[in-house]
């Protein structure tokens, strides 16, 4: 459990970091390191060089910008969790406590989790559901990527080897928005077997958005749109109305089974957690509109 040898370089600015990432050496970026260091320790990753961005001075802090919450690449998960701003993006409040443990969230960054792109992770699913914007810097300049299609496979993203994510921005809650989050894992802090984040929007009492992102069920988060099924339902019957479409969605999934849970069990979890998260989101939306 000792990492293979690597070179270690500290970058002090975004440009310097990008310069290091684009000089042809096989490099990995380290921020919190809570996902990378286990991979190094188990020698699943053996980069020639580790580029430390913890000393960067020119990354954005955690701040509100218009209708968005901007989270810079060095903002720790725990820092977001304990901030006053977190309530403006309720899905972050709901999901952050499920990420590992407090001791890991103290170091682990929000952006790092998105870059790592674990298919059973909470943050990539939430970012995809909310269409968060990722701000990326590369040798040719900056570009923005939509989190909805940022992940292309397990631990695979559209980020290029020579690029650095400098920040991510999440849309804040609007009138009529409601959210729900459900997750099942074997033990507190473990990777999710399956989880579901839901977003419902009500307009004049009717549902005009009902979407959810499931994670732990495939290679990437699976974002599903159930608006068509749920529009027109009133207060009392929505909880029942989510059951059938949730079952349909789950039947179309092919989650991998392992020693922690069979494929069938995960499919069943997906069905139940999707329905529950949508029901919670609906109730939350009724309170906020």
């Amino acid at each position: 459990m000792k990492p293979a040898p690597f070179d270690y370089v500290r970058a002090f600015s975004v440009d310097e970091a990008v310069g290091l990432l684009s000089d042809g050496t096989d490099s990995k970026v380290i921020a919190g390191g809570q996902s990378l260091v286990p991979l190094l320790a188990m020698r699943l990753a053996r980069p020639e060089r580790v580029v430390d961005i913890n000393f960067l001075q020119d990354l954005p802090h955690l701040h509100r910008e218009g209708g968005h919450l901007v989270v810079g690449a060095l903002v720790r998960q725990r820092q977001v969790e304990l901030s006053n701003e977190v309530s403006s993006v309720p899905l972050l409040s709901l999901a952050l406590p499920f990420i590992g443990h407090r001791e890991l969230r103290n170091r682990g960054t929000v952006v790092g989790s998105l870059a790592h792109a674990d298919p059973s992770a909470e943050l990539p699913a939430i970012a995809a559901l909310l269409r968060a914007t990722m701000f990326v810097m590369g040798p040719e300049g900056s570009r923005e990527l939509n989190a909805l299609d940022f992940m292309v496979g397990p631990f695979q993203t559209r980020l290029r080897q020579d690029e650095l994510i400098t920040a991510v921005s999440f849309p804040v809650r609007a009138d009529g928005d409601g959210y729900g989050f459900e997750e099942v894992s074997r033990r507190r802090g473990d990777f999710a077997l399956v989880g579901s984040a839901a977003w419902v929007h009500l307009s004049q009492g009717g549902v005009d958005r009902a979407e959810a992102a499931l994670f732990g069920v495939g290679a990437t988060p699976v974002v599903v749109d159930l608006t068509r099924h749920l529009s027109g339902f009133g207060e009392s019957d929505l909880t029942t109305a989510v059951l059938e479409p949730s079952r349909e969605v789950a039947q179309g999934l092919e989650p991998l089974g392992d020693q922690h849970g069979s494929s069938g069990y995960r499919r069943r979890l997906a069905e139940v957690l999707l329905a529950r998260s949508l029901a919670w989101a609906y109730q939350d939306a009724r309170r906020s509109s």
Partner: peptide, 28 residues
């Protein structure tokens, strides 16, 4: 030695951290 069990927990700049998930060279 991969961050799961918590035995190596220490305080770094006032907050807890797994010392098995930190490289000493990062601690300048």
């Amino acid at each position: 030695e991969h961050g799961v069990c918590g035995m190596c927990t220490v305080l770094v700049n006032g907050t807890t951290a797994r010392s098995c998930l930190l490289f000493t060279c990062q601690l300048e």
